[in-house]
């Protein structure tokens, strides 16, 4: 849409848009206030007093650290697997036309298009049938499956904008396939992959529905949160953990946004 400098938004539209954004953001801001409340037993508003002592209490809780560590490890490995699979798939789909190409896009999107509970229960019953005990790796297996799609989406969008003549030029100039990948393809898709990887990390770090089905006794951070939500034990600690989770997930998202923002300006995009 072209910009029309004279156009002013009607007041009603401005109010509705601002109200919508406030509706989206105020609840998250509320978490930050609650992390410092002195009230322990209820969710009282306004908070009777403010204190920073719950930060220290949370810092010294081994169960929180254990859950956080598990979540980070699961997210890191799932992200690596998803990046490899997603990039391969994106490269194949965007470079060539072949029979069943549309089906592959559908297959990649399916784990996230179908409700998470279906993916979760399907994996769980498959593990049961195959007699695979629940472990760290069963969690990774589930997470990597639905993380492929975010890497794939980012990579496909970038491949579409990268000109294939660059690859041909590189090959004509005598580079072999691996050199072309290392020096031509990778620099062009690098930021898109990084952004996809960060989003995959955020997705896996936060996932709870599939995880409840694929985890045995281990608790990832979201599972720990879920337990606290269903049966609150120490509300202030939960408040602090919630605040930390918000901060931790914002960083990769902001980074991913800045990495893909300039994606229009990749080399050879004008071809």
């Amino acid at each position: 849409m072209r910009s029309d400098r004279n156009a002013r938004a009607p007041l009603g539209l401005k109010i509705a848009a601002a109200g919508g954004l406030a509706f989206l953001h105020l609840p998250i801001l509320l978490i930050f206030v609650y992390a410092f409340t002195t009230e322990e037993k209820s969710y009282q508003w306004p908070p009777p007093g403010l204190t920073a002592k719950w930060l220290a209490v949370t810092w010294n809780r081994p169960d929180v650290w254990e859950a956080l560590g598990l979540s980070v490890r699961v997210a890191a490995i799932s992200t690596v697997v998803a990046m490899v699979l997603g990039t391969l798939c994106a490269a194949a789909v965007s470079r060539t036309r072949f029979f069943g190409r549309e089906t592959i896009s559908l297959l990649v999107i399916l784990p996230i298009a179908l409700p998470g509970i279906i993916t979760g229960i399907a994996l769980r019953s498959a593990f049961n049938i195959a007699d695979i005990p629940f472990s760290f790796w069963t969690i990774v297996l589930g997470h990597a499956t639905f993380c492929v799609v975010v890497v794939y989406n980012n990579a496909v969008a970038r491949f579409r904008r990268t000109s294939s003549s660059l690859i041909e030029a590189s090959m004509d100039l005598g580079a072999d396939g691996f050199q072309t990948f290392r020096h031509v393809v990778l620099p062009n898709i690098g930021t898109a992959l990084l952004a996809g990887g960060m989003l995959a990390f955020a997705l896996s770090f936060d996932e709870v529905i599939v995880t409840t089905f694929t985890a045995g006794q281990q608790a990832t951070l979201p599972i720990w949160m879920l337990e606290e939500l269903v049966r609150p034990r120490q509300r202030p600690v939960t408040n602090v953990v919630a605040m930390v989770v918000v901060l931790v997930t914002f960083l990769p998202i902001l980074a991913a946004y800045y990495l893909t923002r300039d994606g229009d300006r990749v080399a050879g995009a004008g071809k």
Binding site: L226, A242, T249
Partner: peptide, 9 residues
């Protein structure tokens, strides 16, 4: 992208 559980919380 922010945490689903935190939003519910």
């Amino acid at each position: 992208w922010s945490s689903y559980l935190v939003k519910i919380y």
